[in-house]
Design a protein around this nucleic acid. Structure first.
Lengths: 343, 343
DNA sequence: CTGTTAGCGCATTCAA
DNA sequence: TTGAATGCGCTAACAG
């Protein structure tokens, strides 16, 4: 009946038998239950080590109906910013004794939904989400909310009942950087952005618009380019600019990747940066420092955001019957003025 | 006794009861066991959907002593290359119905060991590893090997019994890029590298050395700089160069990050690239294209490596009683000649 | 402070 | 083709 294909595992029964105690005692000792006196506990811990005992996470998960696993869903892992965030999350999660399961949506609502379902089925203790471009419905998060599983959004967030959001003030950052461009003499500004369903892009656009209006500069839909913010997108808008379909003396782009590719394409065609066009990006990726001239941008370090997001989640998971609900957090950002905008 | 704190879950018992069949039948139907006729199976599947049944992964894990979870341990998530690899891994893993648990070693042998233990305890179905700088002992992988859990190394690999390695030909790539520098007229070459315990750096150094010797150029320990390959490291070596403690007309660096920071520091001090010094990096990160002049480098796309690594692992997990053992794979690389080396 | 006991949900064996 | 029964390893209730 019982099958031991490759050497059986050590269980608390083995420890109990070796020490002539009950499994209940062993279980308690292993969990640092104060009912067990130090001496007994030590004996048990030592025997466990001696036998090479490894707790069976399935058995305890089955019993408790909870894991020490935390799920995260992000649009993609391979962007400088996001990999920084994930690195920060992983660091905190792991240091707190949890595991991290990762899922990518590839900017697809469908894949995001699939990821959420899988993570739910795997009984994650908490969920961290940065939304895909395409997400419109949030129903796939309801099971978590209903079941009381803490859910936190970061960066690309949505205001759902009881779900804190960890963000920066995108409106303010965009306002500042746009105002900077204006203060350097730009009068015809355009904005390259991403899907406006997402707060990050919507808010940055709003900040851009407000800065224009506060400085009595005209604004209109023709000044906004909605793209996927890829390097290709930057290049494409640059080409429209080169062909005079687009006029501008200042460009604010919602990420560094597209800003840099935009800049490089212009340079390739002999347009001088920042003399002919000033450019500003967003994120302070390493490329923004490396490109020539260095890109004015918003510093917005992902690693910290990841750590704070993860800490907030763990706090939420660990709250027994605590006081108030953890609220959303707005992180600091910083305007980095560099050569690309010294027009 | 039974506790349903937040609305009970649907189990196969609920389905069985609703349909007046046994749980055994339900279990079989859900697993597409051919003993169950289509008609019955369909009825069960539909009822499962209707009730919103979600299989309990703990229970089946406990029963089968295996998961559909795959573990990965990497030095860090936030490097362009590594995040690309992880993205590729995640894509394949998820598409194949597995989950991905991630752990970072932060280049520490200790943390790598902790990660391996955690993943082992979590009964991962397979493990993917890229080794930390500091790893010297490989004992923490033995439990996997003993238990027959497939283990694959990628990029930073080690030759362990039965563990395939997914790599590029680092020796050859280094030989090619060094030879290129020599062909462009460099006569005094230095090499900036990482920890030589790791194959990637050891092999690149060997390729560098071989290219020098094949071209009758002198080689010695003073031409090799072992660093952590960070941006700071590149800058520091650049400063030694500026202060004439280091002489060179050609520099081959084992990654793009340090190559770029090396280059930028030299440029800042008025040294002309490539007229005064030719520079070559490794990886073809986006920064290597963006920097001015663009960096000669080795193209070595991580996303594909990740996908291939993951596919190989899944194949290994799924092999029933298959033919031969999957072997190591050497992926293609490409020398990208760009302006930084047109000396 | 400690032991007995039951059961979490599932997959499998055995018998029908 | 189906069902009854069992146990995976752990934890918690309850009773000493």
């Amino acid at each position: 009946m019982t099958k031991y294909p490759e050497g059986k595992e050590i269980t608390i029964y083995d420890i109990a038998r070796a020490l002539h105690v009950s499994t209940a005692t062993v279980s308690r000792a292993l969990k640092n239950n104060p009912a067990i006196p130090q001496k007994t506990r030590n004996k048990i811990l030592e025997k466990a080590r001696e036998l090479g005992y490894q707790p069976n996470t399935f058995a305890s998960g089955l019993r408790n109906n909870r894991t020490n696993t935390i799920g995260v869903i992000v649009p993609r892992l391979n962007s400088m910013f996001m990999s920084d965030v994930i690195a920060g999350i992983e660091k905190v999660i792991n240091a707190s004794g949890y595991n991290l399961i990762i899922s990518q949506s590839f900017e697809s609502a469908e894949k995001e939904k699939d990821g959420a379902e899988t993570l739910f089925r795997n009984r994650v203790a908490g969920l961290l989400v940065s939304l895909s471009y395409a997400t419109q419905s949030f129903d796939h998060f309801l099971p978590f909310i209903k079941k009381g599983i803490p859910l936190i959004f970061f960066d690309r967030v949505e205001d759902l009942e009881g779900c804190p959001a960890i963000v920066i003030d995108n409106f303010k950052a965009a306002y500042e950087i746009t105002s900077h461009l204006i203060s350097r003499g730009c009068r015809e500004l355009i904005h390259i952005t991403g899907n406006l369903s997402r707060n990050v892009y919507k808010d940055r656009l709003a900040g851009f618009e407000k800065a224009l209006s506060d400085h009595d500069l005209p604004f209109g839909a023709e000044k906004v380019f909605v793209t996927d913010l890829s390097a290709e997108a930057g290049k494409e808008i640059a080409n429209r600019f080169i062909e005079k379909q687009v006029k501008a003396d200042g460009v604010f782009t919602a990420n560094d990747t597209s800003a840099v590719s935009f800049m490089l394409e212009l340079k390739k065609h002999g347009i001088r940066i920042p003399e002919d066009v000033s450019i500003a990006g967003f994120n302070n990726d390493f490329i923004s420092e490396v490109v020539d001239p260095a890109l004015t941008t918003i510093d917005y370090r992902g690693f910290d955001m990841g750590q704070i997001t993860a800490r907030t989640l763990i706090q939420l998971i660990d709250r027994s019957r605590d006081q108030e609900i953890t609220k959303s957090i707005i992180l600091r950002h910083e305007l980095l003025i560099r050569n690309s905008s010294l027009h």
